[in-house]
């Protein structure tokens, strides 16, 4: 009983402390970070948006996407563009429903999905099914993976070259330009930025 009374008494102190904490940590802190971020790094703070010309923009009006977020490539021009990994976010690359498949390593559903994807990618790219790399067969953790492996990009070069009318050398050079290695030679994995690459492919196609 004595403890309950004490608990009630301390709750008043707790409430006062929580109000103060909310004002400092829940209002002032995020606003201060937002303010400094927008003064110093507005492009990053707004989501690293790119225009169709590949330039940085802070406005969603002329943006074709975020350099950080993968997007579905399913439109009429898809044949001449690099395709991203399979996605479990909504219907695919739904940025308001980021998610992985969460299928376990022994899941029959996942096994079937991998088989189907292998056949589909091999047919689309006209290659041996054994040549399809792992990232083309698996859904990412976020469903918004903006990158593919250099192996998957290389696999798509002949198809993109043919559909866009560019030479394979030209396309390969563009892939090269958007390939990053490991940070400091050790962090992460080599990868190719799909959106930036596709922007350049369309630019090159127009300039041809």
């Amino acid at each position: 009983m004595k403890d309950l009374l004490a608990l009630a008494r301390f709750s008043v102190a707790g409430l006062k402390m929580m109000v103060a904490a909310t004002l400092l940590l829940g209002v002032a802190y995020p606003l201060a970070v937002t303010g400094v971020a927008h003064l110093a790094l507005p492009w990053h703070a707004e989501g690293s948006l790119l225009t169709a010309a590949g330039a940085h923009t802070d406005s969603t009006d002329d943006a074709v996407g975020s350099a950080l977020i993968g997007q579905a490539v399913t439109g009429p021009r898809a044949a001449g563009l690099f395709l991203p990994r399979p996605s479990a976010a909504g219907d695919g690359y739904d940025a308001l429903a980021s998610a992985g498949s969460n299928l376990g390593p022994e899941s029959p559903d996942l096994e079937q999905a991998i088989r189907d994807r292998r056949a589909e990618v091999a047919k689309r790219e006209g290659v041996d099914p054994a040549a399809v790399p792992p990232d083309a067969l698996t859904a990412s953790a976020s469903g918004l993976d903006p990158q593919i492996s250099p192996a998957y990009a290389a696999l798509q070069v002949p198809r993109v070259a043919q559909a866009s009318g560019l030479s394979q050398e030209q396309v390969r050079a563009l892939v090269q330009r958007h390939t990053s290695g490991r940070t400091w030679g050790t962090l992460g994995e080599p990868r190719v930025d799909v959106l930036r690459l596709n922007i350049d492919v369309l630019q090159a196609e127009r300039g041809r």
Binding site: L103, L137, A139, A141, Q147, I148, R191
Partner: peptide
């Protein structure tokens, strides 16, 4: 089957 444990992992 996929060649690597990349289901649920990001390329980067």
């Amino acid at each position: 089957l996929a060649g690597a444990a990349m289901e649920g992992k990001e390329v980067r």
